[in-house]
């Protein structure tokens, strides 16, 4: 097979980020991607553009201003009543038309339920390569080198699209850091019409039912997480992680062994088949540190592990290790934090 880029595709220039938004809020993964796009584009010496699609009720000009602050030079805005609320058909047509008109060399989307649905359809329509669920993006030569975990995280592979354009990839939320804001940055806007009316579209959005616990389990974006592993022995001991979490204002996470035992809800699972997290502080109690768990949390700033086994794999990548019985350590840690954090707050007050 050919790995040469055909002449007519050499005109494709620039890095694009599809900016996902929902009920007035941009998904953080879009800004994480914007930071990555900026780095890639600077290496290539090209511009970064954001793509904003939505309905009359979406304030996309405001989102565009945010996009500049996070690194975009330009935004493509497509507004149409049929784009109010995500549906595959009109979004696929809109994004495909934008790409064919403006010819970006790289198109990035978040690996969310929307991003994966849309990226798969757009890549097929364009007949180009799409790398799924990446955790790292680089430039190799002039091409995108997208790295993703394979076989449950035991290996990584780097995938490239050499002879087709655009090069597409979806990126997992929380695998790239949030870029620094630069309030002085501005950019330009262009608009394009979708050219579809409601009667063209077969699928109807009847209703959107927001999750009841949307704000209760917000693991992906928590600053501190206390995670329970199978080493905690039983469901009753979950109160020890809850206790520490309460004192620290933390979220509670779990390994798959724990969610499968039913000690904590499935939404709390961290890892390959759960959430990717990137907190400032990650405390893992009774967690062995299996690779499938590790890939979901190794981006944390500080990792603390409590484990009875001094040879547990988690100590190979944690920053601070306590060799000890978690049932003994957790209550004391909770009490220590409580008294000392209180004292700190008192000092400030």
């Amino acid at each position: 097979r050919s790995t040469e880029l055909p002449e007519h595709l050499k005109a494709y220039k620039g890095v694009w980020v599809f900016i996902e938004h929902d009920r007035g809020q941009v998904h953080s993964v879009s800004w994480e991607l914007m930071g990555q796009a900026r780095i890639l584009a600077d290496q290539l010496g090209v511009q970064v553009s954001g793509v904003l699609m939505g309905g009359p009720a979406d304030d996309m000009e405001a989102f565009a201003k945010e996009a500049y602050v996070y690194g975009a030079d330009h935004c493509h805005i497509m507004r149409d009543p049929v784009l109010q609320g995500y549906r595959n058909e009109p979004y696929t047509k809109g994004l495909t038309d934008l790409v064919n008109t403006h010819q970006p060399e790289i198109l990035l989307l978040g690996a969310t339920t929307m991003g994966r649905d849309l990226a798969g359809s757009v890549a097929t329509t364009l007949g180009t390569g799409l790398t799924a669920d990446c955790t790292e993006l680089n430039i190799d030569g002039r091409a995108l080198a997208a790295t993703r975990p394979t076989f449950g995280g035991s290996l990584l592979c780097t995938i490239m699209t050499l002879a087709y354009r655009p090069q597409m990839a979806t990126m997992r939320p929380r695998t790239a850091p949030m870029p620094r804001r630069d309030e002085s940055r501005t950019g330009t806007i262009s608009t394009m019409a979708l050219g579809m009316i409601e009667t063209d579209i077969v699928t109807k959005l009847l209703e959107f039912i927001p999750d009841a616990n949307r704000n209760t389990v917000n693991l992906s974006y928590a600053d501190i997480i206390v995670t329970a592993g199978k080493g905690l022995k039983n469901a009753d001991n979950m109160k020890l992680v809850w206790g520490l979490a309460r004192v620290l204002g933390a979220e509670v996470g779990a390994t798959r062994a724990v969610t499968q035992a039913g000690w904590l809800e499935a939404e709390r699972q961290v890892g390959q088949t759960g959430k990717t997290v990137r907190p400032k502080l990650y405390i893992a109690a009774g967690v062995s540190g299996a690779i499938q768990h590790r890939v979901g949390m190794e981006g944390s700033d500080i990792i603390v592990a409590i484990n009875t086994d001094p040879n547990a794999p988690i100590f190979d990548f944690a920053h601070h290790g306590i060799v000890g019985n978690a049932m003994q350590v957790l209550p004391v840690l909770t009490a220590t934090f409580r008294s000392h954090l209180d004292r700190r707050i008192l000092k400030v007050a």
């Binding site: 790398t131 990584l156 995938i159 490239m160 699209t161 590790r294």
Partner: peptide, 11 residues
């Protein structure tokens, strides 16, 4: 297949 696996490596 447009995608090419260019490298496989351990974390």
């Amino acid at each position: 297949s447009p995608t090419i696996v260019s490298k496989v490596f351990a974390p």
